[in-house]
Design a protein around this nucleic acid. Sequence first.
DNA 1: CCAAAAGTGTTTCGTATACACCCATGT
DNA 2: ACATGGGTGTATACGAAACACTTTTGG
Lengths: 244, 244
Amino acid sequence: MPGNFNPHLSVDCVVFGFNGHELKILLINRDAINEQSQSGKLKLPGDLIISGEMLNAAAQRILTEFTGLQDIYLKQFGIFDDPDRLAPYSDLEWLEARTGLKIERVVTIAYYSLVKIDLSIPTDLSIAYNARWYSCSSVPALIFDHNRIVEEGLNTLKRELLTEPLCFKLLPEKFTLNQLHRLYEAILGLSFDNRNFRKKIQRLPYIIPLNERQNGVSHKPALLHTFSYEKYLDLKKENTSFIL
Amino acid sequence: MPGNFNPHLSVDCVVFGFNGHELKILLINRDAINEQSQSGKLKLPGDLIISGEMLNAAAQRILTEFTGLQDIYLKQFGIFDDPDRLAPYSDLEWLEARTGLKIERVVTIAYYSLVKIDLSIPTDLSIAYNARWYSCSSVPALIFDHNRIVEEGLNTLKRELLTEPLCFKLLPEKFTLNQLHRLYEAILGLSFDNRNFRKKIQRLPYIIPLNERQNGVSHKPALLHTFSYEKYLDLKKENTSFIL
DNA sequence: CCAAAAGTGTTTCGTATACACCCATGT
DNA sequence: ACATGGGTGTATACGAAACACTTTTGG
């Protein structure tokens, strides 16, 4: 654990991943597995910030510690500032013991982040804190107000998925249209007509069909596609206008 | 100035208003007019939070102090946490003198808020700090990083205006369709065809035409309309689905 | 040859866009 | 009477939605 903490501010990360079928969220144990006080209690990856540290940097630090990845997509979506938010669970003593600080009130800044599950690798901390991917559709009970944070993070993701090209941050570099289709259905909890969905996607100039197919699947292998951020920006520039 | 402050967190409010033609923003003087150190420097309404105070409550407090209104619409849209954000202007000394606190690093939570200009009234503080409505299209230089906060607040408003019924919070209870039209044009910086705009609006079941017209205008008086939040919610419930 | 997922076209309907003139009021 | 903003209708084009079957591969 590095440096001297700022005991007034923390960050918590709602880390989303997609396994091809289901939306997942990364949770860790409250206690490292080599401590005696094994509680089985779960929480979001998060931490107090270090003095002078930028909040985004703190969130990146935590994400790298738990996934082994750099430059993960991160978006601040909320602030949880109830003065009693640490109280209801009597986990406050645990926090004080862990940090060695007298904790009065911690305002936490919540981020959601999107990772390609297939690229994430085990790290010292992810092992020590038994980090696992849980299904978003049945999130277990978490300490503090973390269940509410997850809920609001998911709502934010649903909203922003509709207006920004976030989906590609959850998919492998090369993906099939049906993976994309299932991703939208999983996150939004809706179903879309497959033909209409493919038509719509294929009209987009920034979705590039490759000359390459899946292999190792026991059915007709799908054509792979990739996302071009450059072409996305080109298109966005033209569309100055918008709605209403 | 009430209570003991928490010297780590502040809130700043980007307060928008609409005068029927132009989008406005509320700015105050850095110094009260009865102090000798009259600087003419401008800033956003904002303050350190009081110990134990919720951030929303702090923002409401500030807004009430400067507009005389209760229950103003407020939305948190950003966090400004650069450890040096107070430094570039050497206004830090001013802040320390004002609060009597040693200031190390202040993270500020930014809110935008929407007020009906016609309802706002002068208050002790708005007079003392010479609060004024400035045109959003030419915001003067502000202290600290407040110009950036304004910019991001305006971007957020532009985005959220498209998906949420915010416009009515800027208009009088009874408004004309052309006021609404000008409001959209002013905020988004676009122009819309008047006939198509009116057609679109008049299809919405939550925009209620009244049996009442403008008076005191030297041209054909416009029909007044009002917004029904209840009908808006009804409609929203039905539309579970959305896009893509 | 069977299972499993990939891939493909057409019709219908509603909404977006483009566009120019008359109306009611106060001065 | 005139200046000022309020108010109106139609035709075209595009995208959204609904809908069922054939194809390719591995086992």
